[in-house]
Design a protein around this nucleic acid. Structure first.
Ligand code: MN
Ligand code: MN
Ligand code: ZN
Ligand code: ZN
Lengths: 139, 139
DNA sequence: GAACGCCTTGATACTACGTATCGATACCCA
DNA sequence: TGGGTATCGATACGTAGTATCAAGGCGTTC
């Protein structure tokens, strides 16, 4: 979870400010726990205009503060990124309780690069999600 | 691309029928080429009710006849699956022209299983998408 | 062939998601 | 102090997908 100070610095570096509505949306997301939808953020921040909620979430996504997680049915939820994994990582999603966990693997990234070569495409990025049941839902 | 006969058999096995509206939607999707959105299918099948378009697309997705492809911005497009790859595969998406290509890799699947073990989750499925530029857009 | 049940359909309404527009403010810097 | 840019909220708009419901189709069974 990225601190407000870090976020403010990143915003500032790009000419943006950490305003009061942005702060509210950030606090809301922190209060919503492991993962949340756009609608949940809206409902929990009634003082902030709807457009601003979306704008802020989009901005935070660009900064890597939150990540989008695609569920197995194709819908999306969001998650505050661990500060240390803010750059590149993937998600394991519990189809039972919805819990989202982040992970990264150098071995996997290497294998992905090898596969990417064979596609004939010039690959820039990728997205990977694993679906299953978490330890607690599994017992 | 799965034949109508194959689809009819699969539907029949589940107690469903290949009706005229379903046939229309299938033909429409075949006519739309490499990939298409829900809206494009609707527009190209005005005789069919909107709800039926969505219902049919959902059904075809469950049968593995079409696959959902998540773009890098999180939106979704759809694609008729190659009959031989109908079971499990992934997608390479050109961020320039939108072209979607399917691929599969045993090596990758093996590496994925290894990574999945370390998550502490009981993994059922996964989703992987690669984003880049196709050969023709790259030149 | 009639009755019945289930599948299917289209119209409609509704919810969610996200973007575009626009006039009004707030902040920063010269 | 004045201008320029960022930001905001309200609103409207477009797309995606689901829920409801009444009507029609089709197969099976009697
Ligand atoms: Mn994440
Ligand atoms: Mn596919
Ligand atoms: Zn769980
Ligand atoms: Zn291309």
């Amino acid at each position: 979870m990225t601190t407000a100070d870090t976020i403010e610095r990143t915003l500032s570096r790009r000419g943006y400010r950490l305003t009061s509505p942005r702060r509210t949306v950030l606090d809301t997301m922190r209060g919503l726990g492991n993962h949340f939808t756009a609608e949940e953020v809206q409902h929990a921040s009634p003082e902030v205009g709807r457009a601003t909620v979306f704008r802020t979430m989009k901005l935070m996504r660009e900064l890597g503060v939150i990540c989008q997680v695609v569920l197995d049915d194709g819908t999306a939820v969001y998650q505050l990124a661990d500060e240390d994994r803010a750059d590149h990582h993937h998600h394991v999603i519990c189809t039972e309780c919805g819990r989202v966990t982040e992970f990264a693997s150098d071995g996997l990234e290497g294998e992905l690069e090898r596969v990417a070569d064979e596609t004939g495409f010039e690959i820039d990025t990728h997205r990977l999600e694993l679906y299953g049941r978490c330890a607690s839902c599994n017992s």
